[in-house]
Simulated scan of single mutants.
Amino acid sequence: MGGPLIVVPVSALAVWRGCSESGVMAGDATAPDDYDRACAVDGLAGVITVGENGAQALVLADEPATSCYLPERRAFLRWLAADSEAGLRAAAEAVLAAPATEWEECGAWVSDGPAVLMDSAEAGSELGIEYPGGGMPAQASVPLPVGRWRVRATHTKVDEENWVGLVQLVPTES
Rank of each mutant, 00 (worst) to 15 (best):
T154A: 14
D62N: 12
G134D: 02
T156D: 13
P137H: 04
C19P: 00
S22A: 09
A121W: 12
R73T: 04
Y131C: 05
A97Q: 02
G87S: 03
A26Y: 02
D119F: 06
D112E: 12
L13A: 10
A14L: 05
G18P: 04
S141R: 13
G2Q: 06
A57N: 05
V50E: 09
L77Q: 04
A123K: 11
Q139D: 00
V24C: 11
N162P: 00
D159T: 08
A123L: 00
G43H: 02
P99E: 15
S174Q: 15
T154K: 03
P32K: 01
A140N: 02
G87R: 02
S174R: 11
V110S: 11
A82C: 08
G107Q: 04
D159A: 07
R150V: 08
R150F: 01
V95W: 12
V170G: 10
D34F: 06
C68L: 15
S141A: 15
R17M: 07
E130N: 06
P137L: 01
A140P: 06
G54D: 08
I48M: 05
A65E: 10
A82P: 02
V95G: 04
C19Y: 00
L13P: 01
D42C: 12
P171D: 07
A140V: 07
L58W: 04
I6V: 15
Y131K: 15
Y35S: 04
P143K: 03
E85I: 13
S125L: 12
D42Y: 01
G134M: 07
E52D: 14
T30N: 14
E72Y: 07
K157S: 14
W16D: 01
A121L: 07
R89K: 11
V164Y: 13
R148D: 04
G135Y: 12
P114Y: 09
R17G: 10
G2N: 09
A12L: 00
G18I: 08
T156H: 03
W103Q: 09
E72K: 15
E52F: 06
G51F: 01
R74S: 15
V24K: 06
N162S: 14
G147I: 05
A65I: 03
G18F: 05
V95S: 02
T156Q: 09
L77G: 03
